[in-house]
Amino acid sequence: MNHQNHWYGHAHVFARYCGLRTPPRIRGFVQHGWNIHDGYGADDPPPPGVPRLVWSDGPRRRGIAAGAGNYRVIGAPFAYLLAMADAAATPGATGVAARANPGTADPAVRATPGVTGLAARANPGTPGPAARANAGTAAGRAARPGTEPVRRGTIFYPFHGWEAQAIFGDHRALAAEIAAREEPPVTVCLYWMEFRHPQIREMYESFGFRVITHGTRGGHYQGTDPWFLDKQLAELRAHRRVGSNRLCTALLYGAAAGCEVGVYGDPMLIENENPAYGGNARVRRLWPEMHAPAVDRRVSDAVAAEELGRRYVAPPAEIADLFGWTRDDAPAGAGRARDEALVG
């Protein structure tokens, strides 16, 4: 329904969760990042009548209060990735995906064989920054199912702008604060645009940090890294702590992946921010407990579980049904064989 569904390989995660190689078109608009509004950009709402598939109940409540409808809370794609990883890590399968799909082969097992190998196969044309960034990391080790990775050091996500909005802030001062607070090794993960700037990269590297990016977000179905989230999960699981200068999506992913959370440093400014969001000050008011150099694990676990909608994770058959990924939506009509579902 919308090309944003493919950003960060979200649609691909869902496809693998449902046992599909490539994602068919999703009937609906999947929330593409942690959101303090109604699940979507204030300047870019979903078209009317399109199902709003959001991560958690907060965006749904805000949307309903503003008069929007057609919401379905399904949980974040990252939560599905975690469900698959959990299922793969537990032979005998008590995980969500495995339990939900007793009849068919476990999609998680089918879908996640050795992350790096498949990434290269799935994305042969674009080695780009992603492949470079991944070379020689702990990612491969951490991604192996069933093995609890050795967690070391901190991964830090400086607040990033995007293709249409720039960021104003002092990266050097932030880097100095990270160096002062964190025990090495420190990995700094940049948005792909910033990663392409040698100056920014080299500045962070000058502090002895390893500088990476998880891949490209993509746009209009081009340049999406289908393994973006897998790489991110692998990196997160290789670190003990995750940090950022703002409460953000990556931080919640880190908390869900078992990292200790730290939020500190200059939160920086984003260009032309829509007042509907209420600014970073609102985020601080809503989640004061998450703004500390070391957040209590119980607090961060609970916030991440809620904001990523982990309790809303649906079984593959339900996702396929909701997304319109079954062979035909309507029950059989005259003369049409619809017995075989595409999924399930």
């Binding site: 007793p102 009849g103 058959a317 396929a320 619809r338 075989e340 399930g344």
Partner: peptide, 8 residues
């Protein structure tokens, strides 16, 4: 489907 059962 909510119980993971695909129906034809």
């Amino acid at each position: 489907a909510t119980a993971g059962v695909a129906v034809s």
